[in-house]
Simulated assay, not measured.
Amino acid sequence: MAGFRLGVITDEISQNVEDAIRIAKQYGLDGLELRSVDGKQLHRLSEQRLEDIAAMIHDAGLSVCGLSTPVFKCNLKNKEEVAAHHRLLRRYAQLARRLDTRIIRGFSFWADRDFSAAYPDIVRELQRTVSVLEEYGVQFALEADPSVFATNGSKVAALVQEVSSPWIRALYDPGNNMWDPDGELPYPDAYDALRGDICHIHVKDAVREQGKTEAVAIGMGQVGYERLLARLAEDGYDGWLVVETHYRLTSTLSEEQLKRPAGYGFSAGGEEATVECLESFLNLLGQHGQKIS
Rank of each mutant, 00 (worst) to 15 (best):
G3T: 15
F4W: 04
L6E: 05
I9P: 04
E12M: 01
V17W: 01
D19Y: 07
A24I: 06
Q26H: 12
D30Q: 13
E33T: 11
S36Q: 01
K40Q: 10
S46V: 09
Q48E: 13
L50G: 05
E51Q: 13
M56N: 09
D59W: 02
L62H: 11
C65G: 11
G66E: 00
S68H: 14
P70C: 07
N75K: 14
H85N: 15
L88V: 02
L88C: 07
Q94V: 15
L95M: 09
R97V: 06
D100F: 13
R102G: 13
I103P: 02
F107V: 06
R113V: 10
R113A: 12
R113T: 11
F115A: 01
F115C: 05
S116G: 09
Y119E: 14
Y119D: 11
P120W: 00
D121V: 11
Q127D: 10
R128G: 15
Q139F: 13
A141W: 01
E143I: 06
E143M: 08
P146E: 11
S147I: 11
T151C: 10
A157L: 06
Q161T: 05
E162H: 09
R169I: 06
A170H: 03
L171F: 08
W179T: 03
D182L: 14
P188W: 03
A190I: 03
D192G: 02
H200F: 12
H200M: 08
V203G: 03
A206S: 11
T213A: 06
R227A: 15
G236H: 10
Y237G: 00
E244A: 06
R248L: 01
Q257S: 04
K259A: 11
Y264P: 08
G269D: 01
V275G: 06
E276I: 09
L278A: 07
E279M: 08
L282P: 04
H288M: 10
G289D: 04
